[in-house]
Amino acid sequence: MQRLTRLLLGAATIALAAPLLAPAALAEDSPDPIVIPIHNWSSQIVMSNVVGQMFEGMGNSVEYVSTDSQAVYEAVRLGDATLELEVWEGAFGASFDAAVAKGGIHDAASHNAVTREDWWYPLWTKEACPGLPDWKALNDCAAKFATPETGDKGRFLGGPVDWLKHDQEKVDALGMNFVVVNAGSAAALWAEIAAAEKDKTPIVLFNWTPNFAEAVWPGEFVNFPEWVEGCDKDPAVGPIPDKTYDCGNPANGYLKIAAWDGMKDKWPAAYATLQKVSFTNAQIAEMAKLVDVDGMEPEDAATAWMEANEAVWKPWTE
């Protein structure tokens, strides 16, 4: 009975409202705030603010909450956060897939950007090891990367172990003269580059694009044997017949947008906009640069970016 009443009421509302409103605003967005999670790297914060300001421009209220970048998928799944603007295939693909399997979260859109994560070096390293970016050349000058704790082998500085990057497997598979040392945080990686920059020490470490580091320290990825589907699981795939991980990481990982399943019904207009959102690598790097290099606050950087790029985002909100 109650359901029937509600249905009738709903139908009546739509019937009344339909002629008055534009078709895009068939159903009203809820006045509750859309909760956008932010993490500890700048491009994500600025992008969240850009999209948040777009939503606010459409009359929604928006709130930002800072969360751990892995735990966020659980929060989105439960509706504690509404969406996630940067789902990196390499870094968060596993957490995202696990949350999707549990239900409550889905893939809402993809950015027109590719992500890549692999061994990387700042350009001054090339002076010490001219054959780069070829991985064999890198292996030949392994001694140049030696540190006290690695002996005569070179040191590869990996990301935190929980990023699960299989660097050790790669070293084993390709028989490289390197020892993998894992840093504990992204900040530790940057601190090492900054220290190496002072006296141009050669360094090879884990890095990814798009991020702010490429704006501060120009550099290149190491060219490993190209990623082929299955080279991480099937020993036969890839150049070395009896090894897995005898390949680089995919050079074109996805960058997706995830949303809470309930968003579509609660904020239909905002959801429709979200599905159109798509940033490119250059735009993402620009957002990071505004904060990390120009020293702006993320909110101001978002406003500045939106003023300069109205043609990009305006159409998404219509």
């Binding site: 704790e149 601190a191 220290a195």
Partner: peptide
């Protein structure tokens, strides 16, 4: 500290 000593013990 990392800038001084690097990522190690």
């Amino acid at each position: 500290v990392i800038m001084l000593f690097g990522v190690n013990d």
